[in-house]
């Protein structure tokens, strides 16, 4: 018999190599971004920045255009997430807990925005929103963001409801809780960790949206991705990296924390989609 037949040395070495490659792929770009954002005058072929400074990053933060974009991004993503949760919660609940005729058809319709490219959605709605007078407004951008965000929120919440036991609600009702109390005192406390993560990912989908905002915002709604895309063609690496970091860091940190907390609480990772 071979000693430790499941882990021969060759396989262990391969596994280690795989982990290192994976780590390099996942962290390399982030490292490059961080180094560029926190240094200045960092020219080839220096491997490590000569000057470490947070000044460009702080300058970026102080720039009124950056601040305005940050505000627009927070506003659109926040409102979109709120509406998506309001629409998505009842839908995800019945999709997750009931079997009924037409369920798969509903899922198909909700899956549609994943197949129809956002380009086509944005170009089509561009004209409609122009007619409605909503083009170039936050309201218009929110409306269009709902197309990918609502299905996303529902699919994320579906997983939450799959692990949900309605028995707690029956129990609360027979104990004398009215429907409102059942929701506030029982369902919400049971659901909220999953709900928070679903909201976070839904927020992220809206927050990262470029094409839809561009096509419907018509250059008047300047969110962070719009600003960043414009900066990439002109700016220097330091300011680009700074802006990119500003855009990516808050949700990345929030999601990392949430995943940590959730994994600790339930022993299960949050599942998301790109």
């Amino acid at each position: 018999m071979m000693p430790d037949a499941t882990h021969p040395p060759a396989r262990r070495a391969a596994a280690l190599l795989g982990r290192m490659v994976l780590g390099a792929v996942l962290l390399g770009p982030i490292l490059a971004l961080l180094l560029h954002a926190s240094s200045t005058h960092w020219f080839f072929p220096r491997l490590v920045p000569a000057e470490w400074t947070l000044a460009p990053l702080l300058r970026q933060l102080g720039d009124p255009r950056t601040r305005a974009a940050l505000g627009a991004s927070l506003l659109t993503a926040g409102i979109t997430t709120g509406i998506a949760l309001l629409l998505g919660l009842p839908a995800a609940r019945v999709l997750g807990l009931r079997t009924f005729r037409g369920r798969s058809l509903v899922l198909l319709v909700l899956f549609l925005p994943n197949i129809v490219p956002p380009l086509a959605i944005g170009m089509g709605l561009n004209v409609l929103l122009l007619r409605l007078g909503l083009a170039g407004s936050i309201a218009g951008v929110v409306l269009v963001h709902l197309v990918p965000v609502v299905p996303y929120a529902i699919l994320a919440l579906l997983g939450v409801f799959a692990r949900y036991d309605e028995g707690y609600e029956l129990q609360a009702r027979t104990l004398g809780a009215n429907p409102c109390q059942v929701w506030l005192r029982v369902a919400l406390p049971l659901l909220w960790p999953g709900l928070a993560v679903a909201a976070l990912f839904a927020f992220l989908v809206s927050w990262s949206q470029y094409v839809l905002t561009l096509l419907v915002g018509g250059g008047q709604v300047i969110t962070l991705p719009i600003l960043l895309f414009a900066a990439v063609s002109g700016g220097n690496p330091t300011s680009i990296a700074g802006l990119a970091l500003l855009f990516a860091a808050p949700p990345a940190v929030a999601i990392a924390l949430a995943v940590r907390a959730l994994a600790a609480a339930a022993g299960q990772p949050a599942r998301g989609m790109s």
């Binding site: 029956l170 129990q171 027979t174 104990l175 004398g176 429907p179 109390q181």
Partner: peptide, 10 residues
């Protein structure tokens, strides 16, 4: 149900 005072224990 919430006014019936008939309580379930599962």
């Amino acid at each position: 149900a919430h006014r019936r005072r008939a309580v379930l224990v599962f």
